[in-house]
Nucleic acid binder design. Structure first.
Lengths: 121, 121
DNA sequence: TGACAGTATATCGTATTATGATATAATCTC
DNA sequence: GAGATTATATCATAATACGATATACTGTCA
């Protein structure tokens, strides 16, 4: 019945996939394939979206007006841009992330990560 | 086919629901209802798990050995405890949260949250 | 020039997860 | 002992993620 569960339900949280799509578009507009690559980079290789996940999510985000499609000359590429609503929701989610980290630190649950990391920087 | 998608696939990330269950058990063992209440507290009211979500998630987490059930005298309550595996996975997810926040700060996307918050502290 | 890797978008079916409704019963408080 | 709260559980459905597959363009380099 409710088609907008993800973005307007009682649970004010996003899936990691949606979060990283918003993050990737927070800097600048991108096309689908570019979003995929950026997410892989931004998540230090943790998140890899296949086309099914990406375009499914993009479709829902368009419906929800979290992003809009830019009308460009490109026939091949479709560029997406964050809306104000999208930016607000991203900001809230980021705050949730930050709150969780702060809480974990307060409870001494946050173990300093190892120096050696993925080669993504 | 693959029954352990959530915790062992290419995408090294957890749903917010699983994350908060792990967080709530990171301090001490708790029973189901207690987990629900703790999550509401820890998430500043953002996440509210109903019984369907909670017990479904708990079942999967038991299967994955992220948590174990304690054998107590309580007939009514079932207590759950984090395993080492569960603690490790939680730690990784926390690092993902932290990395995302740091990245957002570096890109000046992190807006200082308003002082007025929920009455959860 | 033509083969091959990579870029780019899209859809399909299935698996996975979240959720509200519902059920049942114990406990607590007044 | 009535009513609110605590507590666990299952069910059907909705929402989401995912791999597979398809199609076609672009770049390169032999």
């Amino acid at each position: 019945m409710n088609k907008v569960k993800t973005f307007s339900n009682a649970n004010v949280s996003l899936t990691p996939q949606i979060f990283y799509i918003l993050l990737s578009l927070a800097i600048k507009e991108r096309h689908g394939y570019e979003i995929m690559k950026q997410i892989e980079h931004d998540s230090n290789g943790r998140i890899k979206l296949g086309p099914g996940t990406l375009y499914g999510a993009v479709k829902r985000m368009l419906e929800e007006k979290l992003i809009i499609e830019l009308d460009t000359q490109h026939a091949r590429r479709k560029y997406y841009k964050l809306t104000e609503k999208g930016r607000t929701i991203f900001s809230h989610e980021l705050e949730r992330y930050n709150d969780a980290v702060e809480l974990a630190k307060k409870r001494s649950l946050f173990v300093k990560p190892s120096v050696i990391k993925f080669a993504y920087a």
